[in-house]
């Protein structure tokens, strides 16, 4: 054990509180970001035989959604089609994706597609019977329009 002696000394000035002293266990990192996770999932049913059904997902006016992953699936090995479009109230409907596949459409993009206004998912059923088990999903990020202009758009 060390021998410790203490004694008074003449003070000469005033420093600052050492905020790093003994705060290790009480500090937790707070992760903040201007991006937020966007996910969307919905059961789209029933889709009439040989017909289609559209789902609109409005986006608040001050937000921008960027989607990287798209998904549509039915519980049977039949032909389906997923069309994703951006519906801008002030502009035309822009088709972003149009994909045909048996049972499952699954798309993963390295560079996401940007949406404002609202997103329209249109599902097609080519079977002779109505489709009641179509599930769609999407994942990406959303951010405010200001931050999008500042950080992402060229």
């Amino acid at each position: 054990m060390p021998i410790v002696e203490t004694y008074p000394v003449v003070v000469e000035g005033i420093g600052r509180v050492d905020y790093s002293n003994a705060v290790e266990i009480t500090t937790e990192p707070v992760i903040t970001s201007w991006q937020n996770v966007f996910t969307f999932s919905e059961l789209v049913a029933p889709i009439p035989a040989g017909g289609s059904l559209a789902v609109n997902m409005p986006i608040p006016s001050d937000l921008v959604v960027i989607i990287y992953d798209y998904f549509a699936s039915i519980p049977a090995n039949r032909l389906i089609r997923l069309v994703v479009a951006m519906v801008d109230p002030a502009g035309p409907v822009i088709t972003v994706l149009d994909e045909l596949a048996y049972q499952t459409v699954s798309i993963h993009l390295l560079r996401g597609k940007t949406f404002v206004g609202s997103i329209r998912y249109t599902l097609y059923n080519y079977a002779a019977t109505p489709e009641t088990g179509m599930r769609i999903g999407a994942a990406g990020i959303y951010t405010t329009e200001d931050q999008f202009t500042l950080h992402i758009s060229p």
């Binding site: 060390p2 021998i3 410790v4 002696e5 203490t6 004694y7 008074p8 000394v9 003449v10 003070v11 420093g15 600052r16 509180v17 050492d18 905020y19 790093s20 002293n21």
Partner: peptide, 27 residues
Amino acid sequence: GVGIRAVEQVPLDGIISSVCFHFPPGA
């Protein structure tokens, strides 16, 4: 306003190879 003199004992025969001083921010 306090001074400290602390004493320990050397645990071996040899050399002091380095001394590290840590002064906290605010000192």
